[in-house]
Design a protein around this nucleic acid. Structure first.
Lengths: 90, 90
DNA sequence: AAAATATTTAACTTTCTGGTTAAATTTCTC
DNA sequence: GAGAAATTTAACCAGAAAGTTAAATATTTT
């Protein structure tokens, strides 16, 4: 956890795209996979990195595994950036 | 350029630390180097990545090369995060 | 113009990353 | 309980990343 794992997770375009897809709402891994040309295994690995960084949560629902965005972790990133920019506001 | 190069640049802790050091004001490469245990060459490479991503500017001053923070690029990151969080405010 | 200083570039090594395919796991359905 | 479906895990590979030391470059000083 911490800022490092968050930034590392966000540095990959596929992972950022996954988060964008989850913005619309939770969905099963398979739905996410179908948005990409890479294998399901590759997407699964990306998901586990996002989960490790706490940017997503997952739950099993029947034989699907549902992924859901957890944007709260991004607060730490916002703070870091604001600090860098001189702490003018919030 | 673009969000990708920014995020990639920010994903390394040494580079984030460099940006933090530059928050206090512009300084020569050598001053930055002295804050780390790694070689000057290594820091120089980090600086070139930050420059490539437009997160810093450099200028020669005598036999020093002065680096300066350019926080404006971070705006794009803020926008991306805010969008992800549901575009509530700004 | 030679020496000293500040920094970058080159060549190289090791470790990490992101992808692949194949096998394992979990749950549902027949 | 066997088979199908959804997903993860394992083993592997190629290319990128981050460090090292040594050589090159640019500038000032003597």
């Amino acid at each position: 956890m911490g800022l490092q794992s968050t930034m590392k997770a966000l540095s990959d375009p596929t992972r950022r795209e996954i988060l964008n897809l989850l913005k619309k709402g939770p969905m099963p891994a398979g739905d996410l996979v179908s948005h990409f040309t890479m294998s399901g295994a590759a997407v699964s690995k990306h998901l586990s990195i996002l989960k490790e960084a706490n940017l997503v949560r997952d739950r099993r629902e029947g034989r699907f595994i549902i992924y859901e965005l957890n944007a709260s972790v991004l607060e730490e990133v916002l703070l870091w950036i604001r600090d860098l920019k001189g702490e003018k506001d919030s």
